[in-house]
Design a binder for these strands. Structure first.
Lengths: 194, 194
DNA sequence: GTGACTATTTATAAGTA
DNA sequence: TTACTTATAAATAGTCA
């Protein structure tokens, strides 16, 4: 949909790829929002730009928490597969080494020319750093998931309240219907209605 | 884009909401794929239907793996959170060393008389074991929390359904009340009742 | 890296089978 | 349900500022 039809393949021109990225990213997120609203469901979209920037949309808070983990690069898989090479300095945890980075360092030391100089103390140091980093990661993960759980529990509580209220209203309304039935019978006995 | 313009709000008619969901879900995922290909980037889309079903698109394998965890049932072998540390020969991971055990070994090696004999390779081996153990623990924790989230989402879904049902019933009952009112008026006009 | 401006292509709401 | 069809609304490619 544009002045001409596009082939479904990487746009080679860099600047028009950038423009298309910006436009379509907006379009995608708009559509995600519409889908969520129109159909009353939960939708999440995650977009990584080529320079590692993250754009996301999420129709619910709990999903937002879950998806935030992608950005924070806390997921082990994401860390080992994507961000070791990237600089990832936009994270407030950038001063810590990632798990994967530590492993890489160990690996390099093993294969390097001077691995004989690597002392046990050095490695223990690495080990400790690794441990601290992982503890941090686990703690943050925990925090995020606890947040999610809280949100969901709150939702559940409110829905239950709503349900109770509706049930009361319904009971009251049903009484009204009984009256109707009684009246119908009463009227049937009236000669004028025959 | 259709025969007429839609308001951006929940579609009340259930069947057309369902149809719209199906169509727009497809459209959203198609657009996500196009964006990923045209701009050569990573995109992920997650959609929860109102009945808790999950639809997802991911341009990369790693994200797909992460998202798959939401959907997957974890009713395989139940590995308790503690079994890694426990002597536990009942776990299939019992041959792995615990994190604490590994640290202890490293510590002992450091303080021991023959720590000079501890090679880098040995430590890397320990490092790897440690890594595997921690990964296992994290994965299991994740599984358990995801299960909780899933359960809560399911609960939410069912409560929503119940609520809708109650609302319908209530509406019907209210109609009944209108009938009552009409009858009351009708009876008031009958001479015999005076 | 945006913000308009259109000519076109796409997506899709209703309708139909 | 599920699948087509079609009239219309939306998105957007190319372009300039």
């Amino acid at each position: 949909m544009g002045r001409r039809k596009l082939q479904l393949k990487r746009i080679e021109n860099k600047s028009s790829r950038q423009v298309t990225f910006s436009k379509r990213r907006g379009g995608l997120i708009k559509k995600a929002r519409e889908l969520a609203v129109l159909c009353d469901i939960d939708v999440a979209v995650v977009v990584f730009s080529s320079r590692g920037r993250l754009y996301e949309f999420s129709s619910t808070n709990s999903l937002a928490c879950i998806l935030d983990r992608y950005q924070r690069r806390f997921d082990e898989e994401a860390v080992s597969q994507n961000s070791v090479n990237a600089e990832g300095s936009h994270s407030k945890y950038s001063n810590r080494l990632s798990h994967a980075q530590l492993l890489q360092i160990v690996q390099r030391q093993l294969e390097g020319p001077n691995f004989e100089q690597m002392t046990v103390a050095d490695l223990v140091q690495l080990e400790k750093q690794l441990d601290a980093t992982l503890a941090q990661t686990r703690a943050r993960k925990m925090e995020l998931m606890m947040e999610s759980l809280k949100t969901l529990q709150e939702k559940e509580r409110m829905l239950k309240e709503e349900k109770e209220h509706l049930e009361k209203e319904l009971a009251a309304a049903k009484n009204g219907q009984d009256t109707t039935a009684a009246m119908t019978m009463a009227m049937a006995t009236l000669p004028l209605l025959r």
